[in-house]
Design a protein around this nucleic acid. Structure first.
Lengths: 221, 221
DNA sequence: GTCTATACTAGGATAGAC
DNA sequence: GTCTATCCTAGTATAGAC
């Protein structure tokens, strides 16, 4: 694959020998965005983290927004890939939901910078994206986010139908569930030591109790 | 009070005839920070929202960070003032916690821009604040935030002691509770129509169930 | 008190050397 | 592919008029 053919096509399309470079940039960018947010992060900083200058970064991404979007996209790819099988698995809605919540929590802890970028992406307004291409890219990412959330909504809806979960608006319930977990990206600061198993249990138990119908508390205390 | 005496003292200290102007600036700033975040908000934009130029803003605040901090401070003042009486009231822990959760949700909905600034403040790093004064100001605000959270932690701890709430780490439980509610500041976009009563119920019920000990489910279904 | 300059810098983005 | 050099805009902050 001669270098001419991959000159500034869409970053994702330009996969080849230098895919590893792209991933390096991606993860440096995720780290930088995590620490300072999109607006306060400079391409110089990202480059510095790579031991390079912005020339390198701009070779792969034509703008800071594109770089941000690609981090976002990568995060959603991982998330969907992880959660989808659990959502469609062959178990009761409440069992599936517990697994999904636990897995989502693990995604947050294990890919923290990426998940924080997702949070920033949710807060981000389309008004910020100047070019039409960028608006399109952001819309696509929001759509991916919606599909992800829909996996949870479907399971919760099922659970309400079976009576395992309390009646109510499944969408709001999912906002509550994901809020419980995603809020971690706001206050948590990843240190050397990983959080204990109790950490995860506390959140997952809270969620399953929070959803459970009062009538079906016997499912497992 | 001659105008000389209030020349650029701490913004909060400079209360007087023009307190109303300060509040106008504060709420315009909250709105602007809500929409675009701290870094992407320009003082020009804030001034424009006031139908003025930045001269006005800089007369009251010596930097953008100071302005942000004052919005944050005002938000925490309102929050503490609202929640403290409920936390100390003469009821069972679970009753108090329900009231506090409901009140916190209402604070979010009714002072949305201010609450969103609080969220941004939590994400913000001290590394961002350059001057020593600013670091001190941010520390004080973080301390206020901690006191606020502690009100919840105390009630939850009591509830665990009485057996109303499930055993576990009260701090993590409070992170879960506040996450459920504060996450609303991330995804919610205030429109003309206020959310229904069902909106609040869904969240508060989820929270109370999430905390409740399995043994004490009979308290009220 | 508020406005209109204006100084000054950070940082996005591009061009062109290598 | 990556770097250096450069352009250029946006935006903080201040000075000084009114």
């Amino acid at each position: 694959m001669p270098s001419l053919t991959k000159k500034k096509l869409s970053p994702v399309a330009s996969a080849g020998l230098d895919e590893s470079v792209r991933l390096e940039i991606l993860s440096a960018a995720a780290e930088a965005f995590m620490k300072n947010g999109f607006a306060a992060t400079s391409i110089d900083t990202v480059a510095e983290m790579l031991g390079a200058t912005k020339g390198r970064v701009y070779y792969y991404y034509k703008s800071k927004a594109d770089l941000f979007f690609d981090v976002y996209r990568e995060a959603m790819r991982i998330n969907l890939e992880t959660i989808k099988p659990l959502a469609k698995s062959d178990q009761t809605p409440s069992e599936r939901l517990s697994l999904m919540a636990h897995a989502h929590l693990m995604l947050i802890l294990e890919h923290f910078p990426f998940q924080r970028v997702v949070t920033q992406g949710i807060e981000m307004h389309l008004s910020g994206s100047t070019t039409p291409d960028q608006r399109k890219a952001l819309s696509a990412l929001i759509a991916a986010r919606d599909r992800y959330e829909q996996l949870f909504v479907d399971v919760v809806s099922e659970g309400i139908a079976t009576g395992e979960f309390a009646a109510g608006d499944p969408r709001l319930k999912v906002k509550a569930v994901l809020g419980t977990l995603n809020w971690i990206t706001i206050w948590y600061r990843p240190k050397s030591k990983q959080p204990s198993a109790q950490f995860a249990d506390e959140f997952v138990n809270y969620i399953t109790r929070g959803l459970r119908s009062p009538n079906s508390y016997w499912h497992n205390g």
